[in-house]
C-alpha cells in the first residue's frame, strides 16, 4: 500500500553536517571546459558543492550531527533505541553502517540498527520507516541518518552531506501522511554498474579512459541517464504531490513549505511550475550545496527554515525522488523542533 498515515510520532529535531571543503563548479574546472561549464551551471543552478576529505565518510558527518543534536535536545543516549541509516555510501559494503554508528555513538545494545539502500528519494522513506517503528511502540526515541558521500571533483552535480533527524513517540501528535512508490523498470537510469555481485570489479574495470578534456573515466563510475531522470522526475512527482495532498485532505494553501529533493534547477523548476507553487514556499539550496542525494531535503530545512521551524508550527510537504527509480511524498507538521545551526566538519 503506497498511501499511509502515521500517528503518535513527533519530529523532535534535525541536524545537518557538511564537509568544510568547498568546490566551485566554475573556478575549479579545467580552462578548456570553462565555457561549457558556465552554460551548465546556469542550467543546473549549482555553483558550489561540498566535498569530503578522502578519509571522511558519510558516517563521520552523521556522527558529528548526531552528537550535536542529542546534546541540544537534552536526550540521554540510553533512551535512544532506534538508528536507521539511509545511504548508498556505507563505510563498508558489509556490515551495516548503522550498527557501527550504534557503537561509536555509545547507544545501547538494545538499539534496532540497520541500513536502508536508498538515495535521492530516501528522506520520506526514512521518516516512514522510523516513524512506523515508533508508531507501533517498537522504538521510543529514534535517530534517522540520511546522507551520502557522492561528490567527485569531475562531476558538477553531487555534493556531500550527512543529516540526523530525531523522532519520538508522542501521543496525539498530528498525523503524518505518506505516498511511497517504486519502479524498478528504470533501475538503469542511475546506477553503479560495476562492483556488486552481478558485475564484480575485475582488473580491466580499473583502466581509465581519457575524454577530450583530459578527464579520466572508469567503468566503475556512476551512470546517469539525464533525459530518463528528467522525464521520470517531472512526470511522476507533480501527480504524487497532488495525490498525497488529496489523501491528507489538504489544499496547497495549507502547506507552509514544499521541500523537494534538490536534483538540479531544470528538474526542480519544472516540478514547481507544473504544481503552480510560488517560489517563496519552495526553498532551494542547489546554488550553494548542490545535489546532496537523500540529504538534500534536511540540508534545505537547516539552511533555509531553521529559525521558522524552531519558533512555531509549520506544515511541510517533503518530496524525494530518484535512483531506483523511487519516489515518495510526506506531509508532516513540525512544531518547536530543535534545529542546530549548520555544522561543518
Amino acid at each position: 500500500m503506497a498511501l499511509a498515515t502515521l500517528k503518535n510520532v513527533r519530529f523532535a529535531g534535525m541536524a545537518t553536517c557538511v564537509p568544510r571543503r568547498i568546490l566551485s563548479n566554475i573556478n575549479d574546472c579545467p580552462p578548456s571546459l570553462r565555457s561549457e561549464r558556465e552554460r551548465l551551471v546556469r542550467n543546473i543552478g549549482i555553483e558550489t558543492r561540498r566535498i569530503c576529505q578522502e578519509w571522511q565518510c558519510l558516517s563521520d558527518l552523521a556522527y558529528d550531527a548526531a552528537n550535536r543534536l542529542i546534546d541540544q535536545l537534552g536526550w540521554k543516549k540510553e533512551d535512544i533505541d532506534g538508528l536507521i541509516v539511509v545511504t548508498q555510501s556505507p563505510d563498508y559494503l558489509i556490515p551495516s553502517t548503522a550498527i557501527i554508528l550504534q557503537d561509536r555513538l555509545g547507544l545501547e545494545h538494545t538499539t534496532i540498527a540497520y541500513d536502508v539502500n536508498l538515495g535521492c528519494s530516501g528522506y520520506p522513506f526514512g521518516l516512514h520507516l522510523l516513524g512506523s517503528l515508533i508508531a507501533t511502540g517498537s522504538v521510543r526515541k529514534g535517530l534517522l541518518v540520511v546522507g551520502d558521500k557522492s561528490a567527485t571533483i569531475k562531476d558538477p552535480l553531487f555534493s556531500d552531506a550527512g543529516t540526523v533527524t530525531a523522532l519520538e513517540f508522542r501521543e496525539n501528535s498530528n498525523p503524518w501522511f505518506f505516498d511511497l512508490n517504486s519502479d524498478g523498470s528504470g533501475f538503469k537510469a542511475i546506477m553503479l554498474p560495476v562492483g556488486g555481485h552481478r558485475n564484480p570489479v575485475k582488473f580491466f574495470h580499473l583502466i581509465p579512459s581519457e575524454d577530450e578534456h583530459g578527464i579520466l573515466h572508469l567503468p566503475t563510475d556512476l551512470i546517469l541517464d539525464g533525459t530518463a531522470v528528467l522525464s521520470f522526475s517531472t512526470q511522476r512527482v507533480p501527480p504524487a504531490v497532488e495525490k498525497t495532498l488529496a489523501y491528507a485532505n489538504k489544499k496547497i494553501d495549507e502547506i507552509d513549505y514544499f521541500l523537494f529533493h534538490q536534483a538540479n534547477k531544470m528538474i526542480n523548476e519544472t516540478i514547481r511550475k507544473k504544481l503552480r507553487l510560488p517560489e517563496e514556499r519552495v526553498p532551494s539550496t542547489l546554488k550553494e550545496f548542490g545535489n546532496t542525494s537523500g540529504a538534500s531535503i534536511p540540508v534545505t530545512i537547516t539552511a533555509r527554515l531553521r529559525e521558522k521551524l524552531t519558533e512555531g508550527s509549520k506544515q511541510l510537504l517533503l518530496g524525494g525522488f530518484g535512483i531506483g527509480l523511487s519516489w515518495g511524498t510526506a506531509i508532516i507538521k513540525v512544531e518547536e523542533a530543535c534545529l542546530p545551526e549548520l555544522i561543518e566538519a
Binding site: 542550467n43 539525464g226 533525459t227 528528467l230 522525464s231 517531472t234 531544470m266 519544472t270
Partner: peptide, 13 residues
C-alpha cells in the same frame, strides 16, 4: 544532452 533536457522541459511547460 543539456540542450535536449532544455527542449524536453520546454515541451512540458
Amino acid at each position: 544532452s543539456l540542450a535536449a533536457l532544455g527542449v524536453i522541459v520546454m515541451f512540458d511547460i
